[in-house]
Simulated scan of single mutants.
Amino acid sequence: MRKGDSLRRWLTACLPDLKVHPDRLQIFFEDGGINARKSATLSFAYAYRLKVLLTDYAADPDHLIVPVLAWIEKEQPQLLARTDSAPFTFRSELLDSKAYDIELSIDIMESVLVSLSNDGKGWNIVHPPEPGYGDIFDGVAASFRQGFGNIELLLESADPDAVLTPAIPPHA
């Protein structure tokens, strides 16, 4: 279940307050299941609801939603192609005139390909990238990534310690 960590790293790179207060971001995996069928391999898919809780979020909520949409375009693009429902849902509590607690719920599917190792003594386990849907936002998400310089590298990186310094500018 790698997408929870991917989203944590992405939001930490995009939202400056999370670098200072990482405890304000909590990630939960709920309603999880394993999708598997009888076949020639033990390949399967994780299916779960990714819950993202930001506490005491003092920026404009738009500055959270934009990077989440850009992350979804890369990590779960089929959610943006659906016409029957929203790509994710949210709940929010206005704490005072300057801060929110915001909870996002994103339905995630993560494929895992399993095959016998070449020596026959173990398993090769691979998490393939999501199928390419092209630029769902017709250049908008690409412009988002370009505006942040090398932020796209975080999505491409398999390095869990990748550190970037992009930030959404504070709204005026």
Rank of each mutant, 00 (worst) to 15 (best):
R2K: 13
R2C: 03
D5V: 03
L15F: 07
P16F: 14
K19H: 12
K19E: 10
V20L: 12
V20E: 14
H21G: 02
D23E: 15
D23R: 14
R24C: 04
L25D: 02
I27H: 03
F29H: 13
D31E: 12
N35I: 04
N35R: 14
A36T: 10
A40P: 01
T41G: 05
A45E: 11
A45K: 05
Y46A: 03
A47V: 12
Y48N: 03
Y48D: 03
R49Y: 00
R49H: 01
L54H: 03
Y57L: 04
A58R: 09
A58M: 02
P61G: 09
H63A: 15
H63D: 15
L64C: 09
L64A: 07
V66H: 07
P67V: 04
L69Q: 02
L69H: 03
L69V: 05
A70E: 06
W71F: 11
I72V: 13
I72F: 08
E73L: 02
Q78V: 04
L79R: 12
T83Y: 12
D84M: 08
S85T: 05
S85L: 00
A86Q: 15
P87V: 00
S92N: 05
E93V: 07
E93A: 08
D96C: 06
S97V: 09
K98Y: 09
A99S: 15
E103K: 02
D107A: 12
D107Q: 14
D107F: 01
D107T: 07
S111P: 10
L113Q: 12
G120I: 02
K121I: 01
W123F: 15
H127E: 13
P128D: 04
P129G: 07
E130R: 13
G132I: 00
Y133D: 05
I136G: 08
V140M: 05
A142Q: 15
F144K: 09
G149D: 07
I151S: 14
I151F: 10
E152V: 01
L153P: 01
L155Q: 15
L155G: 15
S157D: 04
S157C: 07
A162Q: 13
P166W: 08
I168L: 13
I168T: 06
P169F: 02
P169G: 10
P169I: 00
P170I: 01
